[in-house]
Amino acid sequence: MTEPISEKEVSHVAHLARLRLSHEELQLFTKQLGAVLEHAKDVEALQLDGVEPMSHPLPMENVTRKDEVHKMLDRDEILDQAPVTEDGRFQVPQILGEQP
């Protein structure tokens, strides 16, 4: 069985998910996520060796389409909904030289 989720782990997960938590939020979310994971112990405790995992309700096969030219959305219309654009492109803050 896994240990209850810690504030340190929640803090790490928040970072992975690109979220910032205040100290109060960190405490509250740790408690709330802990309660959900406590409930999930019933699933964790099941012996399910040999059961094939099911990730999707339909038997999935790769769907391909013909390689034909179709009319797609207009570039300017799409860029129109972007927060910041420059010369027909999405503009983002500096990436190179950034700490990972």
């Binding site: 399910l48 094939e52 099911m54 990730s55």
Partner: peptide, 9 residues
């Protein structure tokens, strides 16, 4: 992973 197995069951 376990949850996906429950789904199969």
């Amino acid at each position: 992973g376990k949850a996906l197995k429950v789904r199969r069951l």
